[in-house]
Design a protein around this nucleic acid. Structure first.
Lengths: 225, 225
DNA sequence: GGTGCGACGATTGTATTCAATCGAGGTGAG
DNA sequence: CTCACCTCGATTGAATACAATCGTCGCACC
């Protein structure tokens, strides 16, 4: 454990348990807390400027989401990523997201469509500006919003977990990025706007297939999703 | 909120946070806490014989798992099940579990095979003895063990969440049960023992399809999975 | 010199206490 | 009579304090 130079790395006012949860999750996804690293409650409390109680609640949440692992009295640590983990995540996503997209084409609200367009704009902007962490975050959010638009709470929850984990895997394992996927995102939004169920389904399926093969080649396209 | 006659309904010694989490989850699945019902921290603390702190941690865990829903200062309540929720769960499971079964056929250990055989025996016994809650629990466990045997942490986590939710949906919405599915379970175990990937995949796919159509007919087979 | 045992420090788990916020019920003015 | 406002009770959110447990280091003993 290295000494902590800065107690509050992001002093965005005093955080509550939910905010602590988000902050720790972001720090895990962005590699601030590395896989296998042990997270002591007191260190987290100091880091985020709260007491141990909200920290514990946040850690339980993240444990349930699969980012952390704990055993009684043995402490809590960041999950170690298996080699096959990334491929598993992409394979499962390849099963789930086309289904969600097809439903979203039928059920999306105008508000959701607007948010998606906004996300595409922000994403393309972040790509142009080379802001990697922001690209990853927007990517996850994009797929989460589509899942929400499917109207299925089950799909929403699962896709949200998956896309966050995928962003994590990418950021930890691959320090590169891709730009093209955001034009595919724009295509997907258009299909949703048209309400074309099968087009949305196939576009998302192809989109994710490309991400998978790009990942397999370990080259170029990353942060794709 | 009716008055609490019995402070500790299951006095299995003093519970810790993890045990409280399991206990509340079981009570939700078995309909003790009904959908929409608000769960105050103090009532839970009294019910399970601990203070509010471990209760809060358990509630955060269950919230992340999707059984409960909370908003700041608005309290925490059992999620209300949509009408389409059950079908969504079954549809997603129909996508995921055949994949898990195929992998399990290749990677299952002898220990896991033994546990599955034991579960089949226990399940058939519980069916014969008409112990509904136990049948549901064993059902979930059976599918969870197969997912574990797939060697994919992603699949394990998702299938575990799904099977528990499905047990919940069934127990809340349908007060009937089925016996036959356990003979199908036995068939699946045999395929895993043979190491036949495609047989395992197709048996699980058919198994879940039957559960889905049974559910749609709203008759006979329940607690099937 | 190696090994087993025991005490200490560190960390987690829980309880108690206090502060912040929300909603319901009452009260008074219009 | 209706509605706005305000006060109060209840509940959640957070901090502090205390107890239980684990790992490690050191020492005695074999």
């Amino acid at each position: 454990m290295s000494e902590q130079g800065s107690p509050q790395p992001e002093p965005r006012g005093r955080m509550s348990a939910q905010a602590v949860s988000r902050a720790i999750r972001d720090d895990v996804i962005n590699g601030v807390h590395r896989p296998g690293q042990r997270l002591t409650e007191e260190a987290m409390a100091a880091r985020y400027g709260v007491s141990r109680v909200p920290v514990r609640e946040a850690l339980r949440t993240l444990e349930a989401e699969g980012f952390l692992h704990s055993r009684p009295y043995a402490g809590i640590a960041v999950v170690e990523l298996d080699d096959g983990e990334a491929e598993d995540l992409l394979e499962v996503r390849a099963l789930l997201e086309p289904l969600g997209a097809a439903r979203a084409a039928l059920r999306r609200t105008p508000e959701q469509l607007g948010r998606l367009k906004e996300l595409v704009a922000l994403g393309q902007d972040a790509v142009a500006g080379d802001r990697l962490a922001e690209v990853a975050r927007l990517n996850s959010r994009f797929h989460e919003v589509i899942a929400e638009a499917s109207g299925s709470r089950t799909l929403t929850q699962l896709v949200t977990q998956l896309s966050q984990k995928i962003a994590w895997v990418y950021s930890v394992q691959l320090p590169r990025r891709a730009a093209d996927s955001w034009s595919e995102h724009a295509e997907i939004v258009r299909a949703l706007e048209l309400g074309d169920e099968e087009l949305a389904r196939s576009l998302v399926a192809r989109h994710i297939d490309r991400a998978r093969s790009a990942y397999r080649r370990r080259t170029n396209v990353v942060y794709d999703s």
